[in-house]
Amino acid sequence: MTSKEVWIVFTKSKPLEGCSIDIDGCDFYFSEAYVPVDRDGQEMTSIAKVVNRAKEALLEDRLVLSDVSKCLRYHKEHWDVDTVMNKEVHSAAAQALSSNKVEFGGFRSEEIEELVQYRHNLKELDV
């Protein structure tokens, strides 16, 4: 049985000439890639494949992937705190599922990246 899932890859990438978002002049830009994956039965998803698809999608935008800080599977319920950022996570993940293409959230310049901290909360059930 095949099921569809989305992986979120936290990327750091270097712009090439002609990169449309390179208006900051920083060395690296940061963004999350939402990668839709067809999962075949019990077989484990290959993280390398997921990262590679993010890398290819970045290159289409003239960005060269240079580092990945996190790679995690999207579970809607893990992002249920109602914040602007989580809204973007849900909408980008939903878009990736429906388009079956790699989608990106907003890009951040290096200075902004220093100001932004991501918290990913896992809910503990009181049992």
Binding site: D24, D61, F107, R108, I112
Partner: peptide, 9 residues
């Protein structure tokens, strides 16, 4: 192109 956006100072 309206496809990407970036946050910056």
């Amino acid at each position: 192109q309206g496809t990407r956006h970036i946050s910056q100072l």
